[in-house]
């Protein structure tokens, strides 16, 4: 209970200050809507907004899961074979440094107007942090655990399955937590580029019709989505790795 009190208090104070500012300064809702304006915009068409939020959520989660599984597998391959690692790592870094916004129109060109370009953009934006964090985790097996495995003549597979991969999991989760917050950004970038579905599309379309409260309602939902997803990943970590906090102190 205590752990919730402070974050909630922080949010409440921020919203109160915002509300007070709009009220005291007499800002027009078109320029900066007050919190009640935004709530009203949401309540005017909750079905529409929740449907679009669902579209963003599914693309985000599917892309994130693909990147998580693919990223960990690639990290295993990279740590297994030095040659593969040296051949592909510069390429990966180069790919990662390409602004993903620039890829959004190309993905639509290649993959059409459906959900596919959105999911692919999420995968592209999530992939790198997962690979880097997982590879770091896989490379950090303590020497004595490696020797323990070798002294038992453990196969490569056993070394990974029983020692190296579980050991890497806390660091894998560092990558996953970075990736999940990027994932929402990836989905929204794709939606802004191709505003058919999703909260990103709502922001673009409401902006075109000067419906600022609706845009803010969509942005508020995106923020809630991001926070919810981040804490879901963090909660999963706590559930799966109760030992990790204990050994890092």
């Amino acid at each position: 209970m205590k752990s919730f009190a402070l974050p909630v208090a922080g949010a409440v104070v921020a919203i109160a200050v915002w509300w007070a500012a709009t009220a005291v300064l007499g800002v027009r809702p078109f320029f900066l809507p007050s919190p009640p304006d935004i709530v009203a915009a949401f309540l005017a068409q909750p079905g529409y907004l929740l449907r679009e939020a669902w579209a963003t959520l599914t693309a985000t989660v599917i892309g994130f899961l693909v990147a998580a599984v693919g990223g960990v597998l690639l990290a295993v391959v990279l740590t297994l074979a030095q040659s593969v690692s040296r051949a592909t790592l510069p390429l990966l870094v180069a790919l990662n440094s390409v602004p993903k916004v620039a890829l959004a129109p190309l993905l639509v060109l290649w993959l059409g107007f459906g959900a596919a370009p959105k999911v692919v953009l999420v995968v592209l934006i999530c992939f790198f942090p997962v690979v880097v964090a997982s590879a770091a985790g896989l490379g950090s097996t303590p020497a004595e655990l490696g020797e323990l495995g070798r002294s038992l003549s453990a196969s490569r597979w056993q070394q990974y399955a029983k020692i190296r991969l579980p050991w890497a999991l806390p660091q894998v989760f560092v990558g996953l937590k970075i990736a999940i917050s990027l994932a929402v950004i990836g989905a929204v970038v794709a939606e802004i580029n191709q505003p058919n579905h999703g909260l990103g599309a709502v922001v673009v379309l409401s902006g075109m019709s000067f419906d600022t409260p609706l845009a803010f309602a969509a942005i508020a939902l995106l923020a809630l989505l991001s926070v919810g997803l981040f804490y879901a990943v963090a909660g999963l970590e706590r559930l799966l790795l109760p030992w990790a906090k204990a050994i890092t102190g």
Binding site: L145, G149, S153, Q158, K162, W167
Partner: peptide, 30 residues
């Protein structure tokens, strides 16, 4: 390394995610 030779290290080198029994059974599994 031979199967009938066992090593004990300076540090316990236990797997932190396995229970005490699970750790003792690691050589059995491998």
């Amino acid at each position: 390394p031979r199967r009938d030779v066992a090593l004990v290290f300076q540090r316990p080198a236990l797997l932190p995610w396995r229970t005490v029994l699970g750790n003792v059974l690691l050589p059995v599994e491998i």
